[in-house]
């Protein structure tokens, strides 16, 4: 993204969130929604524009687990690690995903397709264990059912 285009987009976002309550969080969330992550350039721009030291902004975004400072893969697979999912075997799902995709939690495959993450709880405990791929939540996911699920997103078994 070139700088003038970025500036225009960021100004739009800043303008949209003008009331003080939750302002900075909302701005950062919307930037991440549009860019997929929080780039250094965007953070620098916001810092200058809203007069918040970059260090403070950095402390803010690293405090909240929702923000990413790096670009993720095309598909983000998030494994729920809530209590119900944990009791029903969520750690095994992460292990199996890591094995199948050859990456660790928090990493992205070298082709830029998949990122593995874990989450605290989606509140879909009734169909534990639960996995979310991008925006869609899948219930009753077990290690054996992962290959067919991944295939829906273009994964090929080697």
């Amino acid at each position: 993204m070139n700088n003038t285009k970025r500036a225009k987009e960021l100004e739009e976002i800043i303008l949209k969130h003008s009331s003080p309550a939750g302002r900075i969080l909302s701005i950062l969330e919307e930037i991440q929604e549009r860019e997929g992550y929080l780039s250094k350039e965007s953070l620098k721009y916001i810092s200058k524009r809203l007069n918040i030291p970059l260090a403070d902004l950095y402390s803010l975004v690293t405090f909240y687990s929702f923000f990413n400072l790096e670009r993720g893969g095309k598909h983000t697979i998030t494994v729920c690690m809530g209590t119900a999912c944990y009791v029903k075997g969520a750690p095994k799902i992460i292990e199996e995903l890591e094995r199948r995709l050859g990456i660790k939690e928090g990493e992205t495959t070298s082709d830029g397709i998949f990122t593995i993450k874990s989450a605290r709880c989606f509140g879909a405990c009734s169909m534990a264990p639960v996995v979310r791929i991008n925006e869609r939540i899948y219930g009753y996911v077990f290690p054996e059912s992962l290959p067919s699920l991944l295939k829906l997103y273009g994964w090929k078994e080697k």
Partner: peptide, 27 residues
């Protein structure tokens, strides 16, 4: 009424942390 979205920090459920978070500080 206005909506403020959290950003994934459990401690922000605590009331004074939540208020800090709404004010744009670390929660």
């Amino acid at each position: 009424i206005k909506i403020v979205k959290g950003a994934g920090a459990f401690v922000c459920g605590e009331e004074t942390a939540m208020i800090a978070s709404i004010e744009g500080k670390t929660g």
